[in-house]
């Protein structure tokens, strides 16, 4: 299960990251839905979806920091948002948006799936339960 979750996280992050780079900023939400449908347990699906969203947006910020330096941009955004030149706030807010998109998508996927079919029923992926 851990391996599957890690694989889903990696794949989800990669897909969401590429899509976000192309301007499809809501991709983590869709990826989250897919993860939610694929995973039977909310307590796994939701953290994985949230992490994928967080990483997709966060890694792009890291890339920006390496390529251009984000300090002045973060300070400027903080000032525009009315927080003075607090650079941390826009960075946190940005990561939170990615995280919330992934989280809510995964939750929605999970909840929808649980209503459509019983656990272990006609869903796309059926992961073996650990400990059985």
């Amino acid at each position: 299960m851990r391996l599957a979750a890690a694989a889903a996280l990696t794949a989800g992050t990669a897909v969401a990251l590429v899509a976000v780079m192309l301007g499809v900023w809501w991709a983590p939400f869709v990826v989250g839905i897919a993860i939610g449908i694929a995973f039977p347990r909310a307590r796994i699906a939701i953290p994985v979806g949230a992490a994928a969203g967080f990483l997709a947006w966060g890694l792009l910020l890291v890339a920006d920091q390496i390529l251009y330096g984000l300090g002045p941009a973060a300070q400027g955004l903080g000032a525009i948002m009315g927080f003075g030149r607090q650079a941390a706030i826009p960075v946190i807010l940005t990561c939170m948006v990615g995280l919330l998109l992934g989280l809510s998508g995964a939750w929605l996927g999970c909840a929808g799936r649980s209503l459509v079919g019983p656990r272990g029923g006609s869903h796309l992926l059926q992961w073996p339960r650990e400990g059985r």
Binding site: G23, L61, A63, D64, A73, L77, P90, V97, L100
Partner: peptide, 26 residues
């Protein structure tokens, strides 16, 4: 994310690290 909330702008397109406000760094 699409429409913003209160004084906040639409959070998705605004904070998208690739095409949003962060492009001011580039």
């Amino acid at each position: 994310a699409f429409f913003g909330a209160g004084p906040l702008p639409p959070l998705g397109p605004t904070f998208n690290p690739a095409t949003g406000a962060w492009t001011m760094a580039l």
